[in-house]
Write a protein that binds this DNA or RNA. Structure first.
Ligand SMILES: [Zn+2]
Ligand SMILES: [Zn+2]
Ligand SMILES: [Zn+2]
Ligand SMILES: [Zn+2]
Lengths: 163, 163
DNA sequence: GCGTTAAAGATACAATATATCATATTACGA
DNA sequence: TCGTAATATGATATATTGTATCTTTAACGC
């Protein structure tokens, strides 16, 4: 579903993304901007083919699947987009316009109800507890990204209202 | 890769699986047994098609993909097999022959080096820390399964030996 | 402008997963 | 034991997701 992002806000995000790319010596081309823009305007993660359809719907030209995958890979490298491996879907980073860096491990909270996603940094406690747990079987964790399911506030509330 | 499971041990596991099914009013048919057996003998998670190939290699008859998916779904319901959503692969439950129940949330530790998997119950600390973290953004966790990557003991050791 | 590099397009195909209908096997009561 | 319903599997087609590879286009540095 479409998220409510006003054009002004969207533009700020895209400009920030452009700057972020430039800082890495990369370019946010038209196509890349288009893909990123669709993800930014979505309230839920999108599959590569969903992104593709949206892009092809919003312009006359048609992009091949290969391009979308390439572009999503690029955007992921730039940390402008994250790939949710549990669903093979993509989501725009929640920190494009702020000065947040991905220093901490990132947790994605996926709502079972409305498919919304929250991107949050791992707490010290969570990181510690997980590492400790892994240690009991000799594992040294490398994961930088965790995906958890749950029910968001809005869905918890609406569930109470009966239907 | 093939895991070292002696035939005796394998048989014990399969019998236990049979009993577990019976307790649920289900049957461990030949095909289901075959699929489960392949997973039990694998040292790493297998995709549905990998299971399919192994099955078709070990018998004259050929099974269609559909059957494998159906059987994997069945085995997953019986909790004899777990599906790793991050890789769309399947792994035999580590607790088929013991009296373990899946009461706690389960963590799967996936080795980046050798692809082995460890199935461990969540610690109280980890569960608590994750729930607490989710709570800060209003989420109520529902996930029963977590998938973490890391390096297993064996791979940590062999990494030290130089190559 | 011209050669070099990066990006995008085009085409083909591989890998993964599901829908649907037909057939076979099993369970179970008459 | 036979008939029937329920369960499980087979067969076929197709949808979905993801890559390989080669060509063309656009950007950049000189
Ligand atoms: Zn991010
Ligand atoms: Zn929700
Ligand atoms: Zn298990
Ligand atoms: Zn290992």
């Amino acid at each position: 579903m479409k998220k409510q992002v006003n054009p002004k806000e969207l533009d700020v995000l895209l400009r920030a993304a452009e700057v972020a790319c430039a800082e890495n010596g990369a370019r946010l081309t038209q196509r890349r901007r288009q893909v990123l823009s669709e993800l930014m305007q979505s309230s839920s993660p999108l599959s590569a083919y969903e992104v593709l359809d949206l892009c092809n719907r919003s312009t006359t030209s048609t992009m091949p699947p290969m391009s979308v995958y390439r572009i999503l890979d690029f955007l992921e490298q730039q940390q402008l987009v994250h790939k949710l491996s549990s669903s093979s879907k993509y989501v725009a980073c929640a920190h494009i316009a702020c000065d947040h860096k991905h220093f901490q491990k990132t947790h994605f909270l996926l709502c079972d109800g409305c498919s919304s996603v929250e991107e949050v940094d791992a707490t010290e406690e969570a990181s510690e507890a997980l590492e400790q747990m892994a240690k009991t079987v000799g594992f040294k964790l490398t994961t930088q990204q965790f995906e958890l399911s749950g029910i968001c506030t809005a869905c918890q509330d609406s569930a109470g209202e009966g239907l």
